[in-house]
Design a protein around this nucleic acid. Structure first.
Lengths: 219, 219
DNA sequence: TCATGTGAACCGGTTCACAGCC
DNA sequence: GGCTGTGAACCGGTTCACATGA
């Protein structure tokens, strides 16, 4: 009988795993087969101990004196991070930022697809932008069910972000990537991830001014 | 004799302070003068204890039974976070994402100004986009000195991100906001802040799938 | 000998809990 | 009574250091 361990992945760790994966892919493309924790650590900006701890945590194992099998480790990370079937994403708000998001994700990964965009402007509704059809925000509910949409990317102006978020929750979306500079109040089962460009720039400026001896990974 | 305390602001705390500031401004706009830690906490998604600790850390003080003076607290946060003079920023890479960044920051804050953009495409070089002149990346060094540029926003494709970052460091920029999915290796005096849209979406997807009882603030 | 696996120590940040004050 | 200010406890995440194994 197999006991499925409830391994806990923290956001920070997820970021590192993602970085490891990227670097492992590059490593393998260079026809290297095995990798040591200190090598992967140097590339990813982490300590060897950190790498070993992460690898241990996800239940992968290397061998002393020969390091980790790059392919196997890559695969294990994939099993852990990649969804079982492609995630279907809605873009909410087709301004400049929204378009950049469309461009950024179009065809980038087989695991994530933006399948619909929503806006209120009659110039956009009905058009196809970057290969994605744009609907009126009123249609979110209907389209979300029809197209089995899982997640939403909020790229609308801050003042309407909360109302759009509520609409998204009502439509049954399970997670939101929020670019609007506003704290979203949503039911606890909906996961929100905030990306605030203004705050990010503020951080760079602040820590560039005052020194920081702190390691950075992802904003 | 005044001893200037070396108060340490962590990235997480900076994010919270930024959120407090936003909410305080709104609060004041509604003509409310005083605010309790539990009120600010509820708005910002933080515990009252956290708010009190933060306020204490930045050396501001309220009064029992009357809470904090909203205006005073707002001002104190401003003193701490805002640069003494406007920060001059260069945009490196004028693709869709770059344009979104230009749009996002144009006229948003008196404290941060994107003063120049750089690209390699002859279609863009020489043009003025969103009110910002676009130069060839070769001119970064010259323009950085001439225009006293402090920070850079990297919005170029991942394969060239490292070389652009190095160029930026050579040009004397003190901090980088990096949108490229690549770990930048730069001298320690240059602060890098990473914003990786793919990883952010991965995070949303992962934590929407598996539950997380973890508090989120900024990606 | 050199790298992994891992219990234990460590560290920074968060929360508790209560004294002090309006 | 209810809030702030804050030492102390707590907690999760990181690093150390060493036993183990190729």
């Amino acid at each position: 009988m197999i006991v499925e361990a409830r391994l806990m992945v923290s956001p920070r760790m997820l970021e590192r795993l993602s970085a490891y994966r990227r670097l492992l892919a590059k490593w393998i493309a260079e026809k290297r087969e095995r990798i040591y924790s200190h090598e992967l650590g140097a590339l990813a900006g982490a300590t060897p101990a950190q790498v070993r701890r992460d690898v241990m945590t996800i239940g992968f194992t290397g061998s002393p004196a020969r390091g980790y099998d790059a392919t196997g480790l890559l695969q294990r990370i994939g099993e852990l991070l990649d969804p079982q079937e492609p995630v279907r994403v809605a873009l909410l708000g087709v301004g400049f930022l929204g378009r950049a998001v469309l461009d950024y994700f179009s065809g980038r990964s087989p695991n994530y697809a933006i399948v619909a965009a929503f806006d209120v402007s009659s110039e956009k509704v009905g058009r196809v932008i970057h290969g994605v059809r744009c609907y009126h925000i009123e249609e979110l509910d209907e389209q979300a069910r029809e197209q089995a949409i899982d997640l939403g990317v909020i790229a609308v102006p801050a003042p309407v972000a909360q109302s759009v978020a509520e609409r998204a929750c009502r439509a049954g979306l399970r997670g939101l990537l929020n670019f609007a500079p506003a704290k979203l109040h949503v039911p606890p089962e909906v996961h929100v991830e905030n990306v605030d460009l203004a705050v990010s720039l503020e951080k760079v400026a602040f820590f560039a001014r005052h020194g920081s001896r702190r390691r950075e990974v992802q904003s």
